[in-house]
Amino acid sequence: MPRISVTVDGVTYEDDVEPRLLLVYYLRERLGLTGTNVGCDTSNCGACTVLFNGRSAKSCTILAAQADGAEVTTIQGLARNGEWHPLQKAFNAEHGLQCGYCTPGMIMASVDLLEHNDDPTDEEVRHGLEGNLCRCTGYQNIVKAVRAAAGEVREGATS
């Protein structure tokens, strides 16, 4: 069984993993980090999105064995010193979620999006989130939330 060392939300873990163990199940069932969800079995829905070495990735399409040496950030590691990330605040303020099941993945995909474009247009947000499906919101308030958070991220950068 491959032995992996992986840092998740700032904590380093060493574990023996079965080769077929998907990263998402490693996070959920070995580490108990159930904030990251499974919504499909075809890499379409994006509910399982985490940051993998800083970039958004679908943790259902990565073997835990491939994560050896990687740094993973999940929705549970996004807040800093108890303060929510601007995207967490904006999804709340703009009603960018209803049932909330897609939300962790949607927020993590948005974190990556804003890191590379801190002033996206509506269209850029929509295309940037094409790997994430939501069945509740019709996306309008998600777009609004990401753009609102972008404003806060920009302000944070200049202040």
């Binding site: 996004l78 709340n92 927020i107």
Partner: peptide, 12 residues
């Protein structure tokens, strides 16, 4: 409802 949902502290 959102606090748990945006932080991943939900009980699915």
């Amino acid at each position: 409802e959102d606090a748990k949902l945006v932080t991943g502290q939900t009980t699915w």
